[in-house]
Write a protein that binds this DNA or RNA. Structure first.
Lengths: 104, 104
DNA sequence: ATAATATGCAGGTAAATACCTGCATGTCAA
DNA sequence: TTGACATGCAGGTATTTACCTGCATATTAT
């Protein structure tokens, strides 16, 4: 997993919206996805390209249509690498700050 | 939680590195954190400001020093909102793509 | 075949981003 | 109190990003 690509892909609200749309209904075409966005088709294409480069979305050509599918694996990897680690130490990390605020 | 701020904060490798450093040793000063980065102090300050604005880091002044503490809560929120959802449907989402690739 | 449809590709621009330098302020210690 | 140290603040620049318009290509349906 290229963590940088995944995080950068997730940094844009339009791209998070696209993932949400695909989660609602997987395998949508570019056109279908565009219909729910307030921007030119070409802009959406770029966003989908970034999601695909991050491996968050896989595509399949179906005649003249391009179907988009979510790939949940990178998100799971993000969890494993980034959230779980801090999650595990969650209480102790908060404890550090609390102690500092209380003046040791 | 301001999801956009959190995701944008996580989108930069330097900022992820800073979070890692604080996870290793919580409550470090600006100077300590800078020592491990290959950039000017002022640049690091900006990164830490972004992390603080996203509520991923909290700070406490201690005389002339500024101590930085991780706040793991937003990361947990990201998990709840973004990862868990896709995680739950992980297998079914992959199934969609597999079926499409196999020609229905 | 041809028209309508779905997508691809090539630039072009304005705003955001990640750096930097230079100087100011505040705190500690001798 | 004065010098050293830790951080704050104000710009300035080069790159990246998120849009756009215009045109090309490929597929389906009449």
């Amino acid at each position: 997993m290229d963590a940088d690509k995944v995080f950068k892909a997730l940094a844009d609200p339009t791209r998070r919206r696209l993932l949400d749309m695909l989660c609602e209904k997987n395998g949508q075409t570019l056109g279908q996805l565009c219909d729910h966005l307030d921007m030119a088709r070409q802009s959406a294409t770029q966003h989908l390209g970034i999601l695909e480069a991050a491996n968050l979305v896989s595509t399949v050509r179906h005649g003249r249509e391009k179907l988009h599918f979510i790939n949940p694996v990178p998100l799971h990897d993000v969890y494993e690498r980034w959230v779980k680690k801090f999650e595990h130490r969650r209480l102790s990390l908060l404890h550090d700050l609390k102690q500092e605020l209380e003046g040791e």
